[in-house]
Design a protein around this nucleic acid. Structure first.
Lengths: 118, 118
DNA sequence: CGGGATCCATCAAGATACTG
DNA sequence: CAGTATCTTGATGGATCCCG
């Protein structure tokens, strides 16, 4: 998926397209409790590289999910926060999160090729 | 995204991982009103190739979202239907679909690089 | 009809290094 | 601190041909 130039058949397509980045949903989740700085997000999303983080942030910004606020200061400071649309998206994600939560290990199991008992 | 071997941080990750295929949500949507045959799905999802369709179907099957039923007949017949988990997933997708529906053109606009008036 | 196999294009994502 | 630039790779999606 991801940013197909085609018109969407239904709302799901569009929504999925917005959050189908590898870490996007996770980033949104982390921003739910308030604005975050770049460095904060990097720490909150272990394993992500700056390049990927900034890229996801930019895409989310383009989709009006997050708001980037730049402070003109001597030590650079930028804050990323959820827009109203972002808050609404997070809310819409809740049932999905719930569904995913109870099926999480089933899903994880499907991604393990073998049983690997030893 | 897609089928990361890592454990999920939250339910959203897992859910997104399940439906982040290019056509997966759309396929699920189409199966909501009853079992579909392979050829039907191919017609219902215009533009998809057999390879990609079967691949998505297999993955959804592995995630226990769809059930594949094979009929031992002279003309081969296979039916794909939603499992209970698949039905629940579709239900959980509704708020997201709603969100996506009202922001659809905003999202589509973000994917258009320029204004292209001419 | 319902797939499988192979080859290919694209792009998201990761590693690393550098800058204002 | 908050990015940017370049290179590489692996996954996803697509085209085409073949088979039971």
């Amino acid at each position: 998926m991801s940013r197909s130039p085609q018109p969407y058949a239904c709302g799901v397509d569009a929504a999925i397209d917005v959050i189908s980045g590898k870490w996007k949903a996770y980033i949104l989740w982390r921003m739910a409790d308030g604005p975050k700085r770049f460095g904060e997000l990097r720490r909150l999303v272990p394993g992500i590289t700056e390049r990927v983080l900034i890229r996801h942030l930019r895409e989310l910004e383009a989709d009006e999910i997050v708001l980037r606020t730049e402070f003109a200061q001597v030590p650079p400071k930028v804050e990323y926060s959820l827009t109203p649309a972002g808050v609404a998206l997070n809310a819409a994600l809740e049932p999905l999160a719930d569904w995913g939560h109870e099926r999480m290990d089933r899903i994880a199991a499907a991604r393990q090729p073998a049983t690997r008992t030893g």
